[in-house]
Design a protein around this nucleic acid. Structure first.
Lengths: 92, 92
DNA sequence: AGACTATATTAGAATATTCGAATAAAGGAA
DNA sequence: TTCCTTTATTCGAATATTCTAATATAGTCT
């Protein structure tokens, strides 16, 4: 995988409104799947699928906690910086 | 368009290997379509189509110069920062 | 063990993206 | 004006993504 392909895959993973919402939710801290589901009003299946995309691109990671799985950003500060540069891009 | 949708659209525009290569090429300076085409070994149509995606997401802009159109990054320093944060993300 | 809860995976239809081929448009030169 | 060069647009086929419904898996509790 070339570097461009790898970077494009990362951006692509962030390039969906639902995944963007999940990422933003996780900026506030770890969440289990059910919480994300309720809080963003998604179906269980859809939540799980989008989390899979984020996870396989290294954007989130998860820990088993008994019966639930708790997702968190792999590198919250880096994501926060990237997002803030994208958010601000029109205010110039 | 919500903010999440807008940000997702921005990321999605960067989320293709060819567009990533075009953006990286433009980090070195302005290029006309034909130069991008040759330098990245793309067809004319495909180059133009990808430039259209980048342009409609505000990532690049272009100027007519006689017969040619010269593309450049709309905000090179911002793109440079975003890309460098994505490039570096595995070296930690 | 069986029932229950939480999450993941699979399958298939609907939709969107991507690419190449053909064509259009627009500026420059003869 | 006509030809040539450069870039954009349109169309359609191939491919990829997204969503829902159904099912599977795995942990907990009784």
């Amino acid at each position: 995988m070339t570097q461009c392909e790898d970077m494009a895959a990362f951006f692509k993973a962030l390039g969906h409104p639902t995944r963007m919402r999940i990422v933003k939710e996780l900026l506030d801290g770890r969440r289990c799947v059910g919480d994300i589901e309720v809080c963003l009003d998604l179906t269980q299946t859809n939540t799980s699928q989008h989390l899979h995309v984020l996870r396989s691109n290294g954007i989130v990671d998860c820990l088993k906690e008994g019966n639930t799985r708790c997702y968190h950003l792999s590198d919250p500060e880096r994501i926060r910086s990237i997002l803030s540069m994208v958010e601000d891009r029109k205010e110039m």
